[in-house]
Design a protein around this nucleic acid. Sequence first.
DNA 1: TCATCTGCCTAACGAACGTTAGTTAGTTAA
DNA 2: TTAACTAACTAACGTTCGTTAGGCAGATGA
Lengths: 199, 199
Amino acid sequence: MNDTALRIKQTALRLFTEYGFEGTSLSDIAQSVGIKTPSIYAHYKSKEQLFIRLVEDVITEERDKWLQIMDGEDARGRSAKERLRMLFDFFTDFTGMSAGQSFLKRTMLVPPRGLEERIRADIIAYEETLSSFLRGLLREAEAEAGVEKPADRGEQQIAVFYALIDGLLVEFQLYDAATHRKRIEAVWDWLWEGITRGG
Amino acid sequence: MNDTALRIKQTALRLFTEYGFEGTSLSDIAQSVGIKTPSIYAHYKSKEQLFIRLVEDVITEERDKWLQIMDGEDARGRSAKERLRMLFDFFTDFTGMSAGQSFLKRTMLVPPRGLEERIRADIIAYEETLSSFLRGLLREAEAEAGVEKPADRGEQQIAVFYALIDGLLVEFQLYDAATHRKRIEAVWDWLWEGITRGG
DNA sequence: TCATCTGCCTAACGAACGTTAGTTAGTTAA
DNA sequence: TTAACTAACTAACGTTCGTTAGGCAGATGA
């Protein structure tokens, strides 16, 4: 992947995230990259294919990112609580490095016409990887916190975890950074208290 | 508002919700209504204005709906827990009557270009009404459940409530009805346990 | 050195978009 | 009965869209 192709992809990610697939034209992308519209076709054979490639690549990159975070030296030796918080932070940091998360969620909520099923399938598969990892981490966190009746709350916790991070993304659109930051903290406190509460 | 104008609005609500503003053309709407495209202009002066009217009307209708539910005879005499659950159901029943909720959330996440600020302001004002109502209901629920230290968890509870219902909407796109129903139940149980947990 | 390849360009295409103008049939009101 | 109004229509407008064709400069490799 050469330099221009990469810049097209990065720009497309930003614009698709902000305005959606139909709300972003190839000329928007080209202008922002600094090339003429037809030059995009030297790198991607259609707008639709650019989008599909983007979804696939973003999924791969995001997965690599949090896998690496969880496997990095920062995470080693930390408690399960701390590692869970790192993961929570990763999925609720919509401003920073993880613009890909916003893109995926928005794409899921308003997918391009005709690509609904394909995208849904890709994202479900992605989330399955995450769920699997989460299950282990949550069990670890419960054990660490000395929860008496861990029972099989796993799926409930995962459902809540997803609902919370997805919900925070929606609200991120609505509120200023300070308000949003406070809400993230409130939600995390609540989440952690719930996990340590036991069943 | 005559019959055709109403049908245009209802159809637009459905199509805008499914495909977004830019993803829905006036000819899509006209065809679905059973009229020719320019006939829309007999009722709305532009596509943008149709959308704005739709947002305003949906906000008014949705607010009226849950206010009426909370004020209706079904709610009278019920416990705060039951009433909170009724509200929770209202905001997580995306299949049924409350298509307006999906429309508002999606519009918030991917607003039409140029209308971002206007829509944001409208929805924030709407949510403020809801927050105000929720505050009272949550306090009532805490008192009813005999929570010892109600402290000032109000804002935290509201943040969690919003995050959960917004998150469930995003996930509704992803999972089948049965899975989603299970997740809703799991999330509610968690929410209620958290409320009665106390601070 | 010369042929090939690459990445970008300009020009232009047909299709679809939102919108306006002008017309017509049906209803309402004087 | 006739005038005015309403809500739909057909025709057509200019613009923008995604896309294709063809050319040209610079880098690459034999």
